[in-house]
Nucleic acid binder design. Structure first.
Length: 883
DNA sequence: GCGGACTGCTTACCT
DNA sequence: ACAGGTAAGCAGTCCGCG
């Protein structure tokens, strides 16, 4: 079929000077040459290679060339390919070539290589410009060197802060995660067209869209229909026998011996390497792995390195900061040459020379992954917590110190950590590995960068790629901000840059038959439908000025389709109209559905962040008016929809950002409202959920929704917050159970009574000191080191300081567990509590009361009157209703 | 010297 | 280092009070 592939599209749109050659023949991957035909030379890299997945790009400082890592699924090896096209680092100048030639400081710069004229389209000025490429011999000469970098010599430099290997990907249109082969030393993309079947179906779904738009859809489909390879991998964890148990050993010094290394491979390898030491017993527990004992630590380490080299991918948990640097420095200390160690240490990461190291700690720490990919199922970033939350297995509890453990107990402990790391990568059919690969494809980001960087960098990479494909000049930060002006709306929260979302004041009470409608990915829809992009916002055309963004003085271009609008809009549509429905389609085989589900959640991660990055200073295309325009249109849309609902006679009882809670609407009313939204606002609404009843208070972002089957949604209420004591949480859950059983309005009378009984029972338990301290522990995150709290000293910081006094290691990110006590300063770390009589019962009663009250005040019950009038002896008079 | 009103800080949540 | 909006509790300050 003469259908355009992504590769065609890219070639047509861009004219980079040195482009990699395009495959002439359509090879089928399955019928490819045997990997035995691989020609690989350690020094020079691969010369011949059957189709393999591009997973990473780095810069090899020794060879002064970009190095690509290609993963061959068949022999499960990574091959290195070094650039041989003479690609040079560069930045751009707006000065004419002739003028730059006369700049002595530039041409005499030791790293200066040459000049070249190029045409670039400037999106801020809507015109093509002639720019001069200033080429350098090495990346450091462009920038990054402390003194006299080329970018500082030039009066104005463009694109100078893009790293060399990133530039290489951009200029050569390399697609990370896709197939490439090597022939005669040349890197050649392997064409991977969509099947006719898929293509026909897609074109049917998007038949009404313009050609330009369809090309984007095909581009995403081409990247995302191809399955990712099986990733052969090794999980590793090490144990070090330090003298002080409360301190983490320093990797830089590496003065304590590595006493155990556990290794689990996807090929079935299960090993623990143990160091023999004096006075250590064998131990007795079962260990489900092969144990290897070493008398000599050096031999042990060399064996570990040997195994690492056998695998293309290495997984660790915090290996960037601990395991790999420790292994490296320890090995050096024991006299192992750097050349024998497969590890290369970066400034804040650890890499493998040949393979790819993925530090799952960094990946799981990523907020977007936490929230959107795993639905906040884990809320602490420790291996134990993530393991427990996602797999149901935590770390082995340590009795005593590492150095005192018998061999088998040590092996079991060490093995468990690798086991969790490995299982995190295999759960849900390798979900994590697939997510990583898919995100790398969408954002054109090497695996090593993707698993370490935040989402603003992923989106940056995706957008920079789009710029290069089109031959666009990437705007300089200050030019972008100067051209687009600042924000014009006032945030409700002091110190914020612009106004955000609308929250509709809830109508307190119990509401039966509630339908929750929401705009399907509201912000991306706005970006698509309103042509939002940094260049189209406040464009240069006089005629566009009347095309105002509601609620702001900003306007939007009517002449040209915005880059962001196309990019984000097409991603949204691919998700909403293709991948999401397919992931739920029961007619498809489970493995296909599962793949679609991986893709749709990856897209969700990107889309959810695509608005926020424009308001984030760390984003390369930071442009707050863009973010402001999006939220402003969002407020306009929801407010207009509320008006419309009311005019249709539907009561709106609550709404937040993109959702509306409608009280017993008829099907016709819903349908009419949705139709109106589509026609008038150019956006789609969905029935997100239907509640048998919802309990609202006057508090925003706080409600309980009960589904027809009795399941319950709890939002924002104290009872579900992570930091509150288990005792309170359990009481709250009991209360929810009671509410879940309510079917009709009549049932409420009984429910109210049961809730009051429940409250009284829990009340007296606290009062009588019958609750163990662990159940009363608050667990609050320390967001910075204790000494950095200078303005106030919150309770968890007080507790942290007490712990520190006792010699415990407390650092940012730790969860501090404390109870409220009667003695000064009112709190005590849970570990230090000896006697239940210390506990401040009244404080806990206050907490219990306010937790219940949040629910009860919506039910129109007041605890003070009902419980206070009963026979509960010394009832502490409660505060009047809090607002 | 103490309590109430108030503001600001901090955390955890919602979309 | 994706954003802003909301709730809640506590720390700290100011002021009145013969």
């Amino acid at each position: 079929m003469p259908v355009k592939t992504l590769t065609d599209f890219l070639v047509e749109k861009s004219k980079p000077e040195k482009r990699l050659e395009k495959a002439k023949v359509e090879e089928q991957v399955k019928e490819e040459k045997k990997p035995s035909e691989v020609v690989f030379d350690e020094e020079e890299g691969v010369k011949e290679l059957a189709p393999s997945y591009l997973v990473s790009a780095t810069y090899d400082g020794r060879k002064r060339a970009v190095c690509l890592k290609l993963y061959n699924e068949k022999d499960r090896k990574i091959y290195l390919w070094y650039d041989n096209t003479g690609y040079k680092p560069y930045c751009l100048s707006d000065l004419p070539l002739e003028e730059l030639k006369k700049m002595i400081a530039l041409v005499n710069h030791p790293g200066f290589y040459g000049l070249e004229e190029v045409k670039k389209y400037d999106p801020l000025q809507y015109r093509w410009r002639t720019m001069t490429k200033v080429l350098a011999k090495d990346p450091l000469s462009i920038g990054g060197r402390p003194t006299s970098a080329i970018r500082d010599i030039l009066p104005k430099a463009w694109e100078a802060d893009i790293r060399f290997h990133e530039n290489y990907i951009l200029d050569n249109n390399l697609q990370v995660g896709m197939l490439y082969k090597v022939e005669g030393g040349r890197l050649i993309p392997v064409s991977h067209e969509l099947s006719k079947e898929v293509l026909d179906k897609v074109m049917k779904v998007f038949e009404d869209e313009p050609e330009e738009y369809k090309r984007y859809i095909i581009r995403w489909l081409t990247l995302l229909e191809l399955r990712v390879p099986e990733i052969c991998r090794l999980a590793l964890d090490i144990e070090v026998a330090g003298e002080v148990a409360t301190r983490v050993p320093s990797p830089k010094e590496a003065k304590d011996p590595v006493v155990a290394v556990s290794l689990i491979g996807s090929d079935g390898l299960r090993k623990v390497l143990l160091l023999r030491r004096e006075n250590v017993e064998e131990g007795s527990c079962e260990v489900d792995a092969e144990l290897e004992y070493y008398d000599d630590e050096k031999t042990l380490l060399l064996r570990v390195f040997e195994i690492i080299e056998e695998y293309p991918f290495l997984l660790t948990f915090n290996g960037d900061d601990f395991d790999l640097p420790y292994l490296y420095h320890r090995a050096r200390r024991l006299g192992i040459g750097a050349g024998q160690i497969p590890i290369e240490l970066g400034r804040d990461a650890a890499f493998l020379r040949r393979g790819v190291h993925i530090d799952l700690y960094r990946f799981f720490f990523n907020r977007s992954i936490q929230v959107y990919a795993f639905g906040q199922r884990y809320r602490e970033n420790t291996l134990n917590e993530i393991g427990k939350a996602l797999l149901g297995i935590g770390k082995v509890e340590l009795e005593g110190q590492i150095k005192d453990l018998p061999y088998r107990e040590l092996a079991r402990y060490c093995l468990r950590d690798s086991e969790i790391v490995y299982r995190l990568s295999t759960m849900n059919n390798d979900l994590v590995m697939k997510l990583i690969m898919v995100l790398a494809r969408i954002t054109y980001t090497p695996i090593e960068d993707l698993t370490r960087q935040g989402i603003s960098n992923w989106i940056r990479n995706m957008m920079l790629y789009e710029h290069r494909v089109r031959g666009w000049l990437i705007p300089r930060r200050e030019d972008l901000i100067a051209a687009k002006g600042s924000t014009t709306t006032k945030a409700i929260i002091e110190g914020k840059k612009y106004r955000g979302a609308e929250v509709i004041t809830p109508k307190p009470g119990i509401h039966f038959n509630v339908a929750v409608l929401d705009f399907q990915s509201m912000y991306p829809s706005i970006v698509r439908s309103y042509n939002i992009s940094y260049e189209t916002l406040n464009c240069i055309h006089e005629e566009c000025r009347s095309n105002k963004v509601p609620g702001t003085p900003h306007w939007i271009c009517t002449k040209q389709k915005g880059l962001t609008s196309l990019l984000i809009g097409s991603l949204r549509d691919v998700r909403v109209r293709w991948y999401k429905p397919k992931s739920k389609d029961r007619n498809l085989p489970p493995d296909v559905r599962e793949w679609y589900s991986v893709v749709q959640s990856s897209l969700k991660v990107i889309l959810n962040a695509s608005y926020g990055v424009f308001g984030a200073e760390s984003f390369a295309l930071y442009c707050p008016p863009v973010a402001e325009a999006i939220t402003s249109i969002g407020r306009y849309a929801i407010n207009k929809t509320v008006e419309k609902a009311q005019s249709l006679g539907v009561e709106v009882i609550y709404g937040d950002t993109d959702s509306l809670f409608l009280k017993s609407p008829t099907e016709e009313q819903i349908e009419e409202l949705m139709k109106w939204v589509e026609k008038e606002l150019g956006m789609e609404m969905d029935i997100d959920k239907v509640y048998r009843y919802a309990v609202l208070s006057s508090r925003k972002k706080n409600y309980i929704g009960v589904y027809p089957d009795g399941r319950i949604d709890v939002k924002g209420l104290t009872g579900k917050k992570r930091h509150i004591p288990d005792f309170i949480k359990e009481a709250f859950m009991e209360m929810m159970k009671i509410l879940g059983s309510v079917k009709t309005i009549e049932d409420f009378e009984d429910a109210k009574k049961r809730i009051i009984e429940l409250y009284k029972e829990r009340y007296s338990k606290i009062k009588h000191g019958e609750v163990p301290p662990e159940k009363l522990a608050f667990r609050v995150m320390l967001s910075k080191p204790p000494e950095r709290y200078v303005k106030t000293t919150p309770q968890h910081v007080k507790a942290a300081l007490l712990l520190k006094q006792k010699g415990f290691d407390v650092k940012a990110g730790d969860i501090i567990s404390f109870v409220k006590v009667v003695t000064s300063p009112g709190v005590k770390p849970t570990q230090l509590v000896r006697d239940t009589r210390e506990i401040d019962a009244d404080k806990y009663i206050e907490y219990l009361e306010s937790t219940f009250e949040q629910v009860l005040d919506a039910l129109d019950i007041s605890l003070t009157t009902i419980v206070g009038s009963r026979s509960l002896w010394s009832f502490v008079p409660s505060k009047t209703k809090r607002r």
